[in-house]
Design a protein around this nucleic acid. Structure first.
Length: 634
RNA sequence: GGUCCCGUGGUGCAGUUUGGAGUGCACGCCGGCCUGUCAAGCCGGAGGCCGCGGGUUCAAAUCCCGUCGGGACCGCCA
């Protein structure tokens, strides 16, 4: 069932300052286009009014900001600086110039002609006045007033912009937007996203400091640790042939800060990973990184909850309810993923008991899971059903059973004839089927059945990022190990320093795959914001875990030596967390793609259309580093 | 490394299925007109190696092969 929209709708009201096409002089086609634009803007992360305040004093070449002028300013002599958003000339006696700065747009009236071109930089001096009767513009925050008797001073000329500097640029090829990012950033959407980001950073800092955390910076140049993500390497000039690595995260250093008695550390840290880019991944990204000593998992969860709830409130003006908890097992069982989107229902239904004694071979499996999609059964095409089946197979299922629910609960499905009347009735009852529903089912190992249906659930029901409430959830009790290596060793689910769940310590050796860890993820609307854990601080326990992983003392010292030695000098119990600020900002700004909330991001290719990076470098520069570039592979 | 989608004046799109002159739409740009517009309006104009290379053909934006660029996803991201 769709998420409740009532509270959301009131918060996400359309920003009245956008044109809606009701202006009489606009042609029919333009009016249609404007209306479409207005609709699009109206649901595009506009619940961010809380950040549209506090511009600071207008000083220097200006006395006021463009976007702040209201009726109360009528009569004031004002000076403003900005870019020409729009010019409307009416012959030699009257011209309008819409001047834009980061706060908004105001209409300036020139009694005469003006040679203003788009995106020129102007300083305008004039007098604020109420607009003449009938000429107010309800779509502009400053629409009740205008600046009259204007004189215009040209501060800088401008070539025509490569794309319209307004909402139309949303449709422009992203490479072009990035090549001219300095133009793109003038747009309201980009300005708003930057302010949302700043508000989140600020709120997070204040929350951490209020809770006694101290900001400490950690090195960007560190030794390479080939675990996990691929690293960026930096060649050493003084020691040719040796390399630094840029940090994937401050993980190791923050634990050393705990040994160092800092007790509560946080940092808004830049992290770098040389992995392929995605809508939610950049080479370089920002994390709130935190660690605390002498604390439990509950304490860490509390600290971080405070930070993200503060950040949410700072952006939206509303504080979400306390963040709920869910075990990893429950999340997989009910939603089929470890990062459930709780904005919509479509929960997975347990059907194993229903088919415990079935004669239908496809359902003779350790686990049978079902998904009821209300109303989708009516009118769905065979092609769509085939596509769903293919999707399920691509996700690892042996197949997908689909059933359309007809009148009186009759099941329309290629496999209906294999199911007894009792089984069909029990299925309808268990899953709560109604006429018109589409039922999907996967039978397999528990994990496969859950994961496949969980992905289909997202495919079929997940709302756009800017819709619905903010549904944070903590996923706890992750398994300590996930899968096995080729030689049968368990693989760590989080990282090898994660503390096992205290209740499971005795099962570590006999049943490692059944051991839970004290690792926890924070999830918001189906996005994994970040993860954390209580760390192992006892060398003996660390050795037990290394033994399980097949890491002997020699290898441990070689790989983690600088990190393990300090733990012999008195390491407090500690744990921490890190979450991705770019992702949090994107969701709070209503953006599907974190590139929209980064001032200068890189596209999927990893190259920068504006600066050209990465570039070749001079041979002499390489020689100084003791490097030579191999010829390209044939 | 893989799968799929997209490259047509400065921008966004039609046109490609079924080959027939760079054919069209909206915006922008340049010039002119216009005293209340507001993503102004009216008139006129300029602007194209249809990403690039090769092939098929009398003829290629269109069909085929390759390549480059961009995007989404899988792998990857402890």
């Amino acid at each position: 069932m769709p998420p409740s929209r009532s509270s959301w709708a009131s918060r996400r009201r359309p920003p009245a300052r956008w044109p809606c096409g009701r202006c009489s002089a606009v042609s029919a086609s333009r009016r249609q286009w404007l209306a479409a634009t207005w609709r699009r803007r109206s649901c595009d992360g506009s619940g961010t009014e809380a950040v549209d305040e506090a511009w600071g004093p207008a000083v220097g070449l200006r006395t006021h900001w463009c976007g702040e002028l209201r009726l109360e300013h009528a009569g004031a002599r004002v000076e403003m600086c900005g870019w020409v958003a729009r010019r409307r000339e009416h012959g030699e006696h009257l011209a309008f110039v819409d001047l834009r700065d980061r706060t908004g747009i105001v209409q300036c009236v020139v009694d005469g002609s003006v040679d203003a071109r788009a995106e020129q930089v102007l300083r305008v001096t004039g007098t604020v006045r109420r607009r003449p009767e009938g000429t107010a513009n309800a779509h502009l925050a400053t629409g009740e007033v205008e600046v009259g008797d204007c004189t215009v001073e040209l501060l800088a000329g401008a070539e025509p912009p490569p794309f319209p500097v307004d909402a139309r640029a949303d449709d422009v090829d992203e490479t072009i937007r990035l090549r001219y990012r300095y133009v793109d950033l003038r747009r309201e959407r980009m300005q708003r996203n930057l302010r949302v980001r700043a508000a989140v950073n600020s709120a997070v800092r204040r929350a951490m400091e209020r809770q006694g955390f101290v900001e400490v910076e950690t090195p960007m140049l560190m030794p390479s640790t080939p675990e996990g993500a691929r690293e960026f390497l930096v060649p050493s000039r003084q020691r040719p042939g040796s390399f630094y690595a840029l940090p994937q995260s401050p993980q190791l250093f923050k634990q050393l800060l705990m040994v160092g008695g800092v007790d509560r550390y946080y940092q808004i840290a830049r992290c770098l990973r040389d992995e392929d880019l995605r809508a939610d991944r950049q080479y370089e990204f920002m994390q709130l990184d935190a660690e605390a000593s002498f604390v439990t998992q509950e304490d860490v969860v509390g600290f971080i909850s405070e930070a993200v709830l503060d950040a949410t409130e700072a952006v939206t003006g509303e504080r979400p309810a306390e963040i709920e908890r869910m075990t990893w097992h429950e999340s997989m069982d009910r939603y089929g993923v470890d990062k459930p989107d709780l904005r919509f229902g479509l929960e997975l239904v347990e059907l194993t008991p229903v088919f415990a004694a079935t004669g239908f071979r496809a359902f003779q499996a350790p686990c049978v899971k079902g998904l009821r999609v209300p109303g989708l059964g009516a009118g769905i095409t065979r092609g769509r059903l085939d596509a769903l089946t293919e999707r399920a197979k691509a996700l690892g299922a042996k197949g997908l059973v689909w059933m359309r629910v007809g009148e009186a609960g009759a099941l329309d499905s290629p496999v209906a004839k294999f199911l007894s009347a009792e089984e069909q009735a029990a299925l309808v009852a268990a899953i709560g089927a109604e006429p018109g529903d589409l039922l999907l089912s996967v039978a397999d190992e528990w994990a496969v059945a859950c994961e496949v249906l969980g992905q289909l659930r997202n495919d079929l029901g997940r709302p756009p990022v800017h819709e619905g409430p903010y549904r944070y959830v903590w996923i706890v009790d992750f398994p300590m190990f996930v899968g096995r290596t080729e030689d049968g060793r368990p693989k760590p689910g989080h990282h090898p320093f994660t503390h096992p769940h205290p209740d499971d310590l005795d099962r570590l050796e006999p049943d490692p795959m059944g051991v839970r860890s004290q690792a926890y993820d924070l999830v918001l609307n189906g996005w994994e914001l970040g993860s954390g854990s209580i760390r192992i601080h006892e060398p003996a326990l660390q050795q037990r875990v290394f033994d399980l992983l097949g890491i002997d003392e020699e290898e441990a010292n070689r790989r983690f030596g600088f990190f393990l030695t300090p733990f012999r000098y008195g390491a407090p119990p500690h744990g921490g967390f890190a979450f991705g600020l770019d992702r949090l900002v994107a969701i709070l700004a209503g953006e599907e793609n974190i590139r929209e909330v980064i001032a200068f991001p890189k596209p999927q290719s990893g190259t920068d259309p504006m600066t050209g990076a990465p570039t070749a470098v001079d041979v002499a520069q390489l020689a100084e580093l003791g490097l030579r570039v191999l010829p390209p592979k044939a």
